[in-house]
Every structure is written in structure tokens, then in C-alpha cells.
Amino acid sequence: MSDALGLYNYWIAIFLMMVGFYNVIASGNLVKKLIGLSIFQTSVFLLYITMGKVKDGTAPILGDGYDTFSNPLPHVLILTAIVVGIATTAVGLALVIRIQEHFGTIEEDELIAQEDSP
């Protein structure tokens, strides 16, 4: 029971990651795959931020009356990771647009079918 109370945040983060991951591998639509990827990454951020939280802590900005702060390091790491995430999404979407222009579709099975019948 104490495990459940102490770990549920991680479990839900993992569940969300896997929903995203499932979308990446299961979806046949190239945009939907990127949406899955973005959910996958965002949920990993939750894992990091959860570990930085300390009980009764506050945001790591010095102010009067506060002396317990959550750990700023995971926050910094995730700021960087968010940037990486949007960068990847943007490049992925640019590729999708070009794929649509050249092949007329963004469904994986139709793209494969085109390749088989030249």
C-alpha cells in the first residue's frame, strides 16, 4: 500500500509513455505517429519532474519564508528535453509535408504499396 502511494505518479507516467509509444508503432498515419512520439516524450518529462519534487518543497526560486526547495536540476534537464522534442517534431512534420507532396499520401500502407508497384 505504501508502494502504491509512493509510486503512483511514476506508474501513471509509465502508462502515459506507453500510450504514446503504442501510437508511434501501431499507427499507420505519419502525423499520428509524430503525435504519439510527442506524447511519449512529454510523459518522460513527467518522470523526471516527479523525481525532482521534494515533500513540502516549493519552486526553486529564492524567496522570503521558504527554505525547502524542489531540486532544480531535473527542471533544467527537461527544459532542454522540451526543446529537443519540439525540434524533432518540427523536422518530422516537415518531412511529412514533403512526403505528401511527392507521394500523395501519408498512410504507411499506401506508401509501401506504391513502392511494390513501380
Binding site: 512520439l37 511519449f40 516524450q41 518522460v44 518530422g92 518531412l95 511529412v96 514533403r98 507521394f103
Partner: peptide, 22 residues
């Protein structure tokens, strides 16, 4: 133009790999 599809596939697999590393 097939390079576009190849790059997309690499992007997906590469990002999954990178996220696992993360």
C-alpha cells in the same frame, strides 16, 4: 524522393532510441 521516407523512418526509430536513452 524515397530518401524522404527513409529519413522519416530513421527519425522515428532514432527518436525512440534517444527517448529510451533519456
Amino acid at each position: 524522393p524515397r530518401a524522404l521516407k527513409a529519413a522519416y523512418k530513421y527519425l522515428i526509430m532514432g527518436t525512440i532510441g534517444a527517448t529510451f536513452i533519456l
